[in-house]
Amino acid sequence: MPKAPIAWLFIGAFLAFCAFFLAAPAVMLMVQSVDGDDGLTLQYFAALGDYRYRVAFSHSLSLSFTSATVGVIAGGLIAFAVLKPDAPRWLRAVVTSFSAVAANFAGVPLAFAFIATLGSLGLLTSMLKSIGIDLYAIGFSLFSISGLTLVYSYFQIPLMVIIITPAIRAMRPSWREAAENLGASSGQYWRLVGLPVLAPSLLAAWILLFGNSFSAYATAYALTSGNIGLVTTEISAVLSGNVVSEPGVGAALSVGMIVTMVVVLAISQMLARRASAWVKG
C-alpha cells in the first residue's frame, strides 16, 4: 500500500523481530534436537526415555494437571460466591484486587513464603508440632509434588478467579429465574444450563492454568533446588552445565515441552468446538 510505507515499516519490524528472536529459536531447538555429529540422529529423543527424564515429564504433567484442576474448581467456586448478585460490594473489591496480586506472586518470593510457613522449620510446621501434629512425620513434604501443587495453587486459584470472572458475569440472572420458573431445581439448572454455558470458558481457563504451571520454573527451582525433577528444571540443568549431558538433550526436552503444549491445545480446541456448538460465530 503506497499510502503508508511507514505502516509497513512498523508491521515488518515487529514481525521480523518475532521471526528472528521467537520463531527462529524454536526452529533452532528442533534442528538441534535431531542434529548429531554425523547428520540426523534420534539419539537425543531416545535419551528422553531415560528414567530421569521420564520422571521429569510425568512430574510436570501431573503437577500441571492437578494444579490446573484444583485452580479451576477452587477459583471457579470463589469467583461464583463473590459474584452472587447480593454479595457485599467490598468483598468483591477485596477478592478482585487480592487475586490480581496473588496471581502475579509466583516465583522465588512465593517459594520462600511457603518455606517460611510449611518448610521443615516453618512457623506453621512448628506450631502444629507443638500441638502434636508432626506434618513431616505423617508423610507431608513441601518439597514433593503434592507440596508443589499446594504452592502452585497459591497463584493458580487467583489466576482462575481473574480469568473466569467475565464469563460468570455474562451469565444472565434471567436464565436462572426462567429455569426456576419452569420448575427446575438448582441442580437441574446447573446441569442443563449453567455448566454447559460456562463449559467453553472453563475449558479455556483450564488450558491457560495448565500452561501456566507447565512452563513455571522459578517457583520449583527455588523450592526444591532441582531435587524434584520437572522438565523446566531439567532443561535449566542442561543449560547451566550442572549435569553431564549434551545440549541436544536440552533441545529435545524443549521440543518435548512445545509438542506437549501443542497437543494439549489441539485436544482443547476439539473439546471446545464440541462444547460450544451453540456459540455465536
Binding site: 521467537l22 527462529a24 529459536p25 524454536a26 533452532m28 531447538l29 500452561g211 507447565f214 512452563s215 520454573y217 523446566t232 532443561i235 535449566s236 542442561v238 543449560l239 536440552g250 533441545a251 524443549s254 521440543v255 515441552m257 512445545i258 503444549m261
Partner: peptide, 8 residues
C-alpha cells in the same frame, strides 16, 4: 515456555 525459549 520461557525455559525453552532461553534454550533456543
Amino acid at each position: 515456555p520461557a525455559i525453552a525459549l532461553v534454550a533456543g
